[in-house]
Design a binder for these strands. Structure first.
Ligand code: SF4
Ligand code: SF4
Lengths: 134, 134
DNA sequence: TGAAAGTGGACTTGAACGGTCGTATATTAA
DNA sequence: TTAATATACGACCGTTCAAGTCCACTTTCA
């Protein structure tokens, strides 16, 4: 079906939470987890992925935590999704894992229209940035 | 992630195949399965669901098969998806299984923007009909 | 009557998701 | 220097679901 993973939802909630704070303020994973009732360990994983892709910056050690690495307007939702999902972010297999991975690719008659749908969805997510959902 | 199920893809391929035939011509599940290399039993289930929702008509017995029940322009892709997926066709849980099913619903800060995204996707699928993908 | 077709339920398998645990490492305050 | 607090990271577990398979039944027509 067409469903966002919980990780993506948690990531969106978390990065939005960070964005509501004064710029540069550091927020801990625990604070976010407690605020929204999200499993701490799972949220940590998500925040680490967002860190690795450069959307937020991490600060280890005591008094550490996370802060935005860019302005909210510079963070499209599409980047958040791809940071968390890695591959598997396309509506159909052949568009994310490659044509070879689908056994019916050569005779498939719907990949062309679905590619257009995919483009529409991508555009929807890339034109919406963090500042719009705060 | 955001992915169409294989059932939906098979359903789209199948119903498009039927639509390419002269109106009223009956096509067997076996013919479709053979043409596209789709597992026959799985395809049958999908066609049965499309039949139950009135998008195609079935004819049992020898020389039986399936035919379109409406004109292609009267079959939006959204109907095909909902016929096959039943529930679980929303981008987030709270929109398809109901608000109560999500443990963080009351404090969730992203459901409002995601509802808009959902509306966009629904519009994309409901404005595209079968005649456009043939 | 029998072959060809749809109907429908049960079942298996594998992968993915959500979640958890344990440990290592970095930083800072006392 | 040390203890507390925080991220980093990999391994692990249980459930659910998608995909596919199997089989028994019914309908229809030649
Ligand atoms: S080739 Fe067709 S069936 Fe295969 S993944 Fe792409 S759209 Fe789906
Ligand atoms: S309430 Fe928020 S977290 Fe829960 S399903 Fe809806 S969007 Fe996702």
């Amino acid at each position: 079906m067409i469903r966002l993973s919980k990780r993506v939802e948690y990531g969106l909630i978390a990065i939005r939470h960070i964005a509501t704070k004064p710029a540069g303020e550091i927020v801990t994973a625990k604070e976010i987890a407690d605020t929204y009732g999200i499993p701490y360990e799972l949220l940590s994983k998500v925040l680490q992925k967002l860190t690795k892709s450069g959307l937020i910056s991490s600060h280890q050690g005591m008094r550490g935590g996370y802060a935005l690495a860019r302005a909210p307007a510079e963070i499209p939702v599409s980047l958040i999704i791809s940071a968390i999902e890695g591959t598997r972010q396309a509506i159909v297999q052949c568009l994310s894992e490659g044509p070879q991975t689908c056994t019916v690719f050569t005779v498939c008659t719907i990949k062309s229209p679905l590619t257009k749908v995919q483009a529409n969805i991508e555009r929807a997510f890339s034109t919406m940035n963090l500042s719009e959902i705060v």
